[in-house]
Design a protein around this nucleic acid. Structure first.
Lengths: 223, 223
DNA sequence: GTTATATTCAAAAAGCTGTCACAAAATGGT
DNA sequence: ACCATTTTGTGACAGCTTTTTGAATATAAC
């Protein structure tokens, strides 16, 4: 199942695309601005990004340009008829396809399928971490323990993925909180503990990989 | 030669900093807003960013936050006296230093040199100390004796890490107390001894590396 | 609405720390 | 060498801090 990021400042457009894409079996996430999209793209992996050109704050072109500096996720751009046609085609923006508004959802879905298929044929080694019977597929957002699929809540995923990506490092509570919850989180001190507890529960026999560093924070350990 | 990015909406401030920094031999680039800085930071690598807090469009904090999501470039923040002091120090914004305006260019340059040096030491040299069968991994917060993991309490870690980082130096009791316990600690004279004892116990065969300097303090010796 | 998820809270468990009284060792003067 | 004095080492433990846990409540998703 592929993951799609829909970027548009208009809620209505996002909803329509989301509805159709979900129906097609894609996992859909949304961003309301170029900036938000940028953050999400840096934080997680998508198989495709559908992005509007016209957006406040950070427009589609700039966002696209920024994303391309770090990721090669395929991008489909949406724009009003004729608008900026030249910029999309003329420059080397790395846009994979381009759909004019208003568009027919069915047509968009066909292009989505085509772009994803195209990109997956040339797919490189996927982003997977393995330790004994523990398999963490970052791009698929799937965690497996001894061939058993483990279901996690979004926060669990975020917390776990961050820890696994920084495995072997002592991560302070502050770091974890600010990286997983955001620098502006002002919650209870016990929130992190509770999520660590849930995470350990989800990990079953591998719960001991989440090591407590008293007075400091936690560390994910494998090997 | 290090590269510095100066971010301030005031042309005058940028020019002053640029003048002094250039004189010190740094390559200086400028950005007039947080957004511009963000773009530049994503596009090229800097050794240090000097950024004002107060800026239109995207303020220093938000810019800092965004930058930290992608890069670990050291950041020195500039702000009016007292202004937002809490936000800089209280939160985990990853600011490396902070200078109040109006500042003396010379002082700023000293801080610049210090931060750059600090960051280069910490990144290039790996964060592990090894002596025979004794391995101290600072970032993982792990101590190993002959391939056996040694568990230490927070205070033991703090004390030990401080001593190892300052190995070969005579550390007075006062220094140790104030660095590990804090300058405001007024406890029993035997507290340090007791922790040295525990530390030696943890170190097993390497306990002799912790040398008593009668009438002075202790020294960690390796080699 | 219902359900799933996230956060808060308080009590219990686990673990750490500083202090004390005393032992041992080093120092220095005679 | 001796003793008096100063400094450091040790074991025990009460009190404290941090983490865990379970359950309740709030919030978001559907």
């Amino acid at each position: 199942m592929s993951r799609i990021l829909v970027v548009d400042d208009e809620f209505g457009i996002r909803e329509i695309i989301k509805k159709y894409a979900s129906f097609e079996g894609y996992e859909v996430r949304e961003a309301a601005s170029g900036m938000e999209a940028l953050d999400m793209v840096m934080a997680e992996d998508f198989d495709l990004i559908i992005m509007d050109v016209m957006m406040p704050e950070l427009d589609g072109f700039s966002a696209c340009k920024e994303i391309r500096k770090h990721k090669k996720t395929p991008i489909i751009m949406l724009s009003a008829r004729g608008e900026e046609y030249d910029r999309i085609h003329g420059f080397e923006l790395g846009v994979d396809d381009y759909v004019v508004k208003p568009f027919s959802p069915r047509e968009l879905m066909m292009r989505v399928a085509a772009v994803i298929k195209r990109s997956q044929n040339g797919r490189d080694a996927s982003d997977v971490f393995t330790y004994k019977g523990l398999v963490v597929d970052f791009s698929a957002r799937i965690v497996t323990v001894d061939n058993e699929r483990v279901s996690m809540t979004p926060k669990e995923y975020d917390l776990f993925f961050y820890m696994v990506k920084n495995r072997g490092l002592a991560l302070t509570r502050e770091t974890l909180i600010s990286k997983v919850w955001g620098y502006d989180f002002f919650g209870d001190d016990r929130t992190l503990d509770t999520h660590i507890k849930l995470l350990r529960k989800s990990l079953g026999e591998y719960s001991s990989c989440v090591v407590t560093l008293r007075g400091v924070g936690y560390r994910f350990e494998a090997e």
